[in-house]
């Protein structure tokens, strides 16, 4: 009798322990779902009043007369994200190759924690640095160099600040990815008479390519969603930017700057929710795509 009670107790204890872990897991999955559902519900109001196509491809943003064209924000976000990736990707890749293939062991041993620390710097600090250094640099040096008189608050400034921010993030991943290429593969290439550089180009990078691409993808999703640092240097002017020296207004900045201000206009509120939804979906897409690539590379 006692024995039975004991086993039953054990069984229930087991169920209990398993269930609270299950609850934690469900909560973790549930919260984003609730979040998306909330965003969809709140943006419904706008979507019912305006066709989605018009919202995405119109550049007329005047909330007070209830015209909501998201194109300037989407274009700004894309410009900044792509530009920052163009700046940071080659730097990251070459640095990672140097650190893993050419540098002395102690350099990598020192750089690893340094990169971690860089990755942990709060983004507002990058924003301040952007205002103090990058914006004047563009205004006084880079702009005049291209014959332009500009304030410096621009797509380019945003991209610069962003690329500095995502470099440590991507660099860490790239180092691990390149280090994971087996030594024996390099030895095979070298013993066939390839030079070190040929080996890196044709074998190491080739082998690590899916990982490299996906780390760029994760960097991009990071860049696309970054708010504060970009907002501080990008100028926040609602117009489709036609050049890198022009100010822009990316999606996260739109939400951060305006949410809570004009909630008396229900459509405006709904528009900001739609902006958040677009942001969420784009970042999710980048992420899923990148992870998929990693997964595919691992199973090969």
């Amino acid at each position: 009798m006692k024995h039975i009670r004991l086993t039953r107790y054990r069984k229930w204890r087991n169920v209990f322990h398993q269930s609270w872990m299950m609850i934690a897991l469900l909560a973790m999955l549930f919260i984003p779902l609730v979040l998306v559902a909330g965003l969809i519900m709140k943006s419904m109001l706008l979507l019912e009043n305006h066709p989605l196509f018009e919202l995405l491809f119109s550049s007329d943003w005047s909330p007070l007369s209830s015209r909501f064209g998201f194109l300037p924000f989407i274009v700004s976000s894309l410009w900044i994200t792509i530009l920052s990736l163009l700046i940071s990707a080659p730097v990251c890749l070459l640095t990672a190759i140097h650190l893993t293939q050419y540098a002395k062991r102690w350099v990598l041993r020192i750089m690893h924690p340094v990169i971690d620390i860089l990755a942990g710097i709060p983004s507002v600090i990058f924003g301040v640095w952007g205002i103090l250094v990058i914006v004047p640099f563009i205004s006084h040096q880079l702009g005049p160099l291209f014959g332009k008189s500009v304030s410096g608050y621009s797509i380019l400034a945003g991209a610069f600040v962003l690329s500095i921010m995502i470099i440590p993030f991507m660099l860490n991943m790239l180092i691990d990815i390149i280090k994971a290429v087996p030594n024996e593969l390099q030895e095979a290439s070298l013993s066939l008479g390839a030079s070190k550089w040929q080996t890196i180009k044709f074998v190491v990078v080739r082998k690590a390519l899916p990982g490299i691409v996906s780390s760029f993808g994760l960097g991009m999703s990071r860049a696309f969603g970054e708010t504060i640092a970009v907002l501080m240097v990008v100028g926040n002017v609602t117009r489709i930017p036609t050049g890198v020296f022009q100010p822009g207004y990316p999606l996260p900045a739109l939400i951060a700057n305006n949410y809570g201000e004009m909630l008396s206009i229900p459509l405006y509120d709904s528009a900001l929710m739609l902006a958040a939804l677009i942001l969420f979906l784009v970042v999710l897409m980048f992420n899923v795509f990148s992870r998929f690539l990693i997964l595919k590379a691992e199973t090969h």
């Binding site: 095979a188 066939l192 008479g193």
Partner: peptide
């Protein structure tokens, strides 16, 4: 190195 062909302990085909 081109004078010697190396066959390793385990095969490592190039990617």
């Amino acid at each position: 190195r081109q004078k010697m062909g190396l066959l390793a302990q385990r095969p490592y085909p190039l990617p």
